[in-house]
Design a protein around this nucleic acid. Structure first.
Length: 643
DNA sequence: GCAAGATGTCATGCT
DNA sequence: CGAGCATGACATCTT
């Protein structure tokens, strides 16, 4: 219970501190934009029909660049949600992933020279911090603040380091390690990256260290917050510098070292996750990770289940070297993957908080880890909640990056990796097994070989039908009937996959998977119903739009009619006034004219006519009798015609 | 418990 | 001819 409270408290503190950075850290977009294209929003909510993103289409558009044309009006909404998600991501305890991004972008010696040592303050720490960029200037003002930010990393996440190292030492070590390579990198990196860099450096430099999985009660915020003397820090740093430098240099000497470092860190995380029992050797960790790779689906790795986000990260790192032929990972892939993992961090924290608060009292410390792992999974699933559009965005983007490395996509926490294989979604959606067991061995659906086959035959065709949003959706609400049917029939595809995959792929799936006739029928039904569902939704939307448009047109026409009526009345009034004036004028004119007898012309018998040439002529008005006779004649003609 | 709206599904016609 | 789309009608669920 104490641990849970501590976790919760630290999480709140961390979140609070990170949120306080929002106002300053205005370049969040720039940080992310460097790794991802403009985010694509996928709305899988109630109105999914209007906004559902066809992944197979987005595949050809640089990972769904831009908002779905059907829902441009939601752009602002998604943008706000994305920003919120980014802020939440800042609170992720898994800053290690950021470290990887930093390592990928190795800083050349020239860059380092360009940035040069800082001249502002006396300490290396200060210089590094000040060189981190405008957004972090507020942080560089005091070393305390920096340490405060570092605290969440150390004391928070499951991957915090330093079993035998005091928090203070850890912090110092981070700063020291950072020195050789950090300045240039930090110059263009965000404060978050700095933190991750610090954290990651420690991990990297101490691969063999035994790291407790959870923040020990001794490692406290207060400890770090109390560390105010930078000079002491420097001295400590200088003392540890030689050891750290060797490790760091070795780690960044080549790209492959990145993976090694990741594996190392993963091993550390794995240990931490499995902590409490006994520390595993790095070799064991490695074997486990490799085994995960061979399993094909990575998202449900036990480590991931155990650790919030660090574990998936570990699995990812491990997969890279073994599962992918390339020795180096694509930068974009790494960063996308890591960022995706980071996205899970806060979610994991939230879930942890909820679950811990709810059930900590009756769990053992060992079980607590399992709980966390579960929370991690649920978090991931919940990460797709309506509040986290960014996750889906990032997942989509990362998916595009990892197209070539589908085999290694297992990294992702949950869904995403799985989805990309088309297999994983089951592992995510199916009831989780014991966290300590390998989930892949617990497939209740078709054999793993089947899924592997899918992954192999359709490595990039099956677009992660399950985004975070989708996964969360599935878990938040009950599964649709088709989902249940598909599961009952051991169909290794989600309804969303079945519906969204192009016809060619669908046909290929039907042919290559050896489905029974019942399964094929169900697949076709699911696809038909799914398509029709979307069509119905679109149809209803169109109908509503049409109704709205017609209502607007009715209003517009009514307004026009009113306007015309007013004009008509005004015109009639004007005409009446003009006629009255004409009659008056005519009387005046006629009164001034004289007939042959010298008498004024009678207005009732004479009138004025204006000719086409502008001449005004006095005309004799026909007698009423004449007009009546004429009308009578016309009436007679009409009667004749009728007869 | 009822009503209205939302949503899913089927049937049908059209492209 | 089959797939997909559009839409009316009905059933079911939600509010």
């Amino acid at each position: 219970m104490q641990i849970g409270k501590k976790y919760f408290t630290e999480g709140l503190i961390q979140l609070t501190i990170l949120l306080s950075f929002i106002g300053v850290r205005v370049d969040v977009d720039s940080y992310i934009s460097g790794y991802y294209p403009p985010l694509t929003e996928i709305n899988l909510g109630p109105s999914s029909a209007y906004t559902q993103t066809p992944f197979h289409i987005l595949r050809d558009t640089l990972d769904g660049y831009g908002v779905h044309p059907k829902c441009p009006e939601l752009d602002y909404f998604f943008a706000s949600r994305r920003l919120l998600e980014e802020v939440r991501t800042l609170g992720s305890p898994r800053f290690h992933t950021q470290l990887n991004a930093w390592l990928v972008h190795q800083v050349s010696a020239t860059d380092e020279a360009e940035h040069g040592p800082s001249t502002s303050s006396g300490t290396d720490t200060d210089s590094v911090l000040e060189s981190s960029g405008d957004s972090d200037e507020h942080l560089s003002e005091s070393g305390q603040e920096v340490r405060r930010r570092a605290n969440p990393e150390v004391g928070q996440g499951p991957c915090h380091s330093g079993a035998g190292v005091t928090p203070k030492e850890e912090d110092e070590a981070k700063v020291t390690e950072e020195d050789p390579v950090a300045p240039a990198q930090l110059a263009h990196s965000s404060s978050l990256e700095q933190e991750s860099l610090l954290e990651g450096s420690t991990t990297l430099s101490n691969p063999g260290r035994c790291h407790p999985p959870f923040p020990t009660p001794d490692i406290d915020w207060s400890n770090f917050l109390s560390l105010t003397d930078l000079d002491d820090l420097d001295s400590l740093v200088s003392g540890r510098l030689p050891d750290l430098n060797t490790d760091i240099i070795g780690a960044i000497s080549q790209n492959v070292s990145l993976h090694d470092a990741m594996v190392t860190s993963s091993g550390i995380y794995g240990e931490s996750s499995s902590e409490g029992t006994e520390p595993r050797s790095s070799a064991q960790q490695q074997r486990n990770l490799l085994r995960l790779d061979s399993a094909g689906s990575s998202d449900t790795s036990p480590e991931m289940a155990l650790g919030l986000a660090a574990l998936p990260f570990a699995s990812v790192c491990n997969m890279t070297p073994s599962a992918t032929p390339q020795g180096t990972l694509n930068d974009c892939l790494d960063e996308a993957v890591f960022d995706q993992i980071n996205q899970l961090g806060l979610d994991g924290l939230e879930t942890m908080n909820n679950q811990l608060l709810g059930s900590l009292g009756c769990i053992e410390p060992h079980a607590l880890e399992d709980l966390d792992s579960d929370s991690g999974l649920s978090l991931e699933s919940s990460s797709g909640s309506p509040l986290s559009p960014g996750s889906s965005e990032i997942s989509s983007s990362s998916s595009s990056y990892c197209e070539d490395e589908c085999g290694a996509t297992g990294y992702s926490s949950e869904v995403e990796s799985v989805l990309s294989k088309g297999i994983t979604d089951y592992s995510t959606t199916w009831p989780p097994t014991h966290p300590n067991e390998n989930i892949w061995h617990d497939h209740s659906y078709a054999s793993a070989a089947l899924f592997n086959k899918a992954a192999i035959t359709l490595p990039h065709k099956i677009e992660e039908p399950f985004s975070d949003d989708v996964c969360s959706d599935l878990e938040e609400r009950e599964l649709s009937r088709d989902e249940l049917r598909a599961r009952a029939m051991c169909i290794p595809f989600s309804a969303l996959q079945i519906v969204n995959m192009p016809v060619e792929e669908f046909m290929e799936v039907l042919d290559s998977y050896g489905f029974s006739s019942e399964q094929v029928t169900l697949l076709r039904d699911i696809r038909r119903r799914g398509k029709n569902k979307l069509a119905a939704q679109n149809c209803r939307k169109r109908k509503l739009d049409a109704i709205t448009g017609l209502q607007e047109e009715v209003e517009r026409l009514q307004a026009q009619r009113d306007r015309l009526l007013r004009d008509k009345q005004l015109t009639a009034k004007t005409m009446g006034a003009v006629g009255h004036q004409i009659r008056q004028l005519t009387r005046d004119v006629l009164a001034r004219l004289r007939d042959r007898s010298g008498q004024p012309l009678n207005p009732e018998r004479y009138t004025l006519q204006c000719g086409a040439n502008g001449r005004v002529v006095v005309q004799h008005i026909r007698q009423p009798a004449v007009s009546t006779s004429a009308s009578n004649k016309t009436d007679k003609r009409k009667k004749d015609k009728k007869q």
